[in-house]
Amino acid sequence: MTSTTQLLRGLLDLDSVGARTTEDIYVGHTPSLGPKRVFGGQVLAQSVIAAARTVDEDRPIHSLHGYFLRPGDPDTPITYGVERLRDGRSFSARRVHAYQDGAPILSMIASFELPGEGINFQDEMPANVPDPESLPSAAEELGGIDHPMARMWAEHRPFDMRYPDGSLYLSSPAHPERNLVWMKTKEHFGDNPLEHQAALAYGSDFTLIETALRRAGTNWLTSGSSIASLDHAMWWHRPARVDEWLLFVQHATSAQGARALIKASVFDREGQLVATVLQEGMIRPPRQR
Score class of each variant (00 low, 15 high):
residue 57 E to H: 10
residue 42 Q to Y: 09
residue 59 R to M: 03
residue 35 P to L: 10
residue 44 L to Y: 13
residue 58 D to R: 00
residue 38 V to M: 06
residue 35 P to D: 02
residue 52 A to S: 14
residue 38 V to S: 06
residue 33 L to Q: 15
residue 50 A to G: 07
residue 35 P to F: 08
residue 39 F to E: 09
residue 55 V to G: 09
residue 38 V to R: 06
residue 53 R to Q: 14
residue 50 A to K: 01
residue 34 G to A: 05
residue 48 V to E: 04
residue 60 P to K: 03
residue 53 R to A: 15
residue 59 R to H: 11
residue 58 D to E: 07
residue 57 E to F: 09
residue 38 V to Y: 11
residue 55 V to D: 11
residue 62 H to K: 07
residue 33 L to V: 15
residue 48 V to Y: 02
residue 58 D to G: 07
residue 46 Q to R: 08
residue 40 G to R: 04
residue 63 S to Y: 12
residue 61 I to T: 15
residue 34 G to Q: 03
residue 44 L to V: 13
residue 45 A to K: 04
residue 50 A to N: 02
residue 45 A to D: 05
residue 43 V to C: 00
residue 53 R to K: 15
residue 55 V to Y: 00
residue 59 R to A: 11
residue 52 A to I: 06
residue 36 K to V: 03
residue 47 S to R: 00
residue 40 G to P: 08
residue 41 G to M: 10
residue 40 G to H: 02
residue 33 L to E: 15
residue 37 R to T: 04
residue 64 L to Q: 02
residue 38 V to Q: 05
residue 57 E to I: 14
residue 60 P to L: 08
residue 48 V to R: 04
residue 61 I to M: 15
residue 33 L to N: 13
residue 42 Q to I: 04
residue 43 V to Q: 01
residue 57 E to R: 14
residue 46 Q to G: 15
residue 34 G to W: 08
residue 48 V to C: 09
residue 38 V to D: 10
residue 50 A to T: 07
residue 34 G to P: 04
residue 55 V to L: 03
residue 43 V to H: 02
residue 51 A to I: 13
residue 35 P to Y: 08
residue 62 H to M: 09
residue 55 V to W: 02
residue 51 A to E: 01
residue 45 A to Y: 08
residue 49 I to H: 03
residue 36 K to F: 10
residue 52 A to P: 10
residue 47 S to T: 06
residue 46 Q to S: 10
residue 56 D to Q: 15
residue 47 S to A: 14
residue 50 A to H: 06
residue 62 H to G: 06
residue 46 Q to M: 11
residue 60 P to M: 08
residue 46 Q to Y: 03
residue 33 L to A: 15
residue 47 S to F: 05
residue 38 V to E: 06
residue 60 P to T: 12
residue 43 V to I: 11
residue 56 D to S: 14
residue 44 L to E: 03
residue 39 F to L: 10
residue 36 K to L: 11
residue 55 V to K: 01
residue 45 A to M: 03
residue 48 V to M: 13
residue 59 R to Q: 05
residue 55 V to P: 11
residue 40 G to E: 06
residue 54 T to V: 07
residue 61 I to V: 15
residue 35 P to M: 12
residue 51 A to D: 07
residue 64 L to Y: 00
residue 37 R to F: 10
residue 45 A to L: 07
residue 40 G to K: 05
residue 37 R to W: 12
residue 43 V to W: 01
residue 52 A to F: 01
residue 48 V to A: 13
residue 45 A to P: 04
residue 35 P to H: 12
residue 37 R to M: 11
residue 44 L to A: 05
residue 58 D to N: 14
residue 62 H to V: 08
residue 61 I to S: 08
residue 41 G to R: 08
residue 42 Q to C: 02
residue 34 G to N: 07
residue 50 A to C: 10
residue 44 L to G: 00
residue 51 A to N: 05
residue 64 L to H: 00
residue 43 V to G: 04
residue 49 I to P: 00
residue 46 Q to T: 09
residue 63 S to H: 13
residue 59 R to L: 04
residue 46 Q to K: 14
residue 57 E to P: 10
residue 45 A to S: 05
residue 61 I to R: 11
residue 58 D to V: 02
residue 48 V to L: 11
residue 59 R to I: 05
residue 54 T to C: 06
residue 55 V to H: 06
residue 61 I to F: 03
residue 58 D to K: 00
residue 46 Q to L: 08
residue 42 Q to N: 07
residue 44 L to W: 12
residue 39 F to T: 09
residue 50 A to V: 06
residue 52 A to C: 02
residue 41 G to Q: 07
residue 51 A to Q: 01
residue 55 V to Q: 10
